[in-house]
């Protein structure tokens, strides 16, 4: 198939960017979206132009590196990551708009590549269980009820791609933060740091300049891993509980 691509090009964080238009031909329906961009980049390179920069790595939908807003949707029209989106989701002759994640907490580095280190700092502020190597009791010392284990897993699936922030009209990171809070707070192992974790992570999230949550639900719709919207309510509950319970 033949496609028209309109791609955000931006040389570096300081220079303003703009949309550039490219034509690509001989695109197979079996190609992944990123393989289609590879094709464009091969042509650009041979023509002596700089290829379009975009983050990608595993191309299996698990590393969370890929991050494109395609026709206004984070990760494009299907509920999956960009790397798992295939060209069969598009038709011959389509015009496709490709933009980077937009949020002031995710500044653009180049073209479609953004800086998501704010997510790392949210985890650093409390998204862990303090269990230094060698201190662990036997794995079966603390049974975890299956529903709790499943709840933890469902939230631990987050790949940290940032689609939730990109889709949110407020650039809010509530879904990301709530996924980690819920994963760790439901487990008995996470209980000792339950209150400080949620308070510190929410404080860091605010500090990074993410917006507040207005529960538009755009984040959960865009999430390639299906982290559900009620995660946010569950974190709010944890947060309110923590403001009452935390030892001052």
């Amino acid at each position: 198939m033949k496609l028209t691509l309109r791609v955000w090009r931006q040389q570096n964080p300081e220079t303003p960017g703009a949309m550039a238009t490219y034509e690509v031909d001989n695109i197979s329906a079996d190609m992944s979206f990123l393989e289609m961009l590879d094709t464009l980049n091969e042509e650009l390179t041979l023509a002596g132009d700089e290829p379009v920069a975009f983050d990608h790595d595993c191309r299996e939908g698990i590393c969370g590196a890929c991050s494109l807003v395609i026709n206004g949707d984070a990760h494009g029209p299907e509920r999956t990551t960009t790397c798992q989106l295939h060209m069969r989701s598009f038709a011959d002759g389509d015009t496709i708009d490709i933009e980077p994640w937009r949020a002031s907490a995710f500044p653009v580095i180049k073209d479609l590549v953004v800086d998501r280190s704010s997510f790392d700092r949210i985890i650093q502020s409390g998204g862990y269980i303090s269990a230094a190597t060698g201190t662990a009791p036997d794995a079966h010392a603390t049974p975890v009820p299956k529903p709790d284990a499943d709840f933890a897993f469902e939230h631990a699936e987050c790949i940290g791609c940032g689609a939730c922030v990109a889709a949110c009209p407020n650039g809010s990171a509530m879904l990301f933060t709530s996924a980690k809070v819920n994963h760790l707070n439901v487990l008995p192992q996470g209980a000792p740091e339950r209150e400080t974790r949620v308070l510190d992570m929410v404080a860091q999230m605010d500090e990074e300049g993410f917006g507040g949550c207005t529960l538009t639900g755009e984040c959960a719709t865009a999430c390639p891993k299906g982290i559900p919207l009620p995660s946010i309510a569950a974190m709010n509950k944890e947060w309110l509980r923590a403001t009452r319970k935390v030892r001052r």
């Binding site: 269980i129 662990a136 009791p137 299956k146 284990a149 897993f153």
Partner: peptide, 22 residues
């Protein structure tokens, strides 16, 4: 053997059975 203990202590959500064990 120690690795599994360590990972469980860190909150790695391994698959569990209804009895709550791994």
């Amino acid at each position: 053997v120690e690795i599994i203990d360590q990972c469980v202590a860190q909150g790695v959500p391994f698959a569990r059975e209804y009895g709550g064990l791994l």
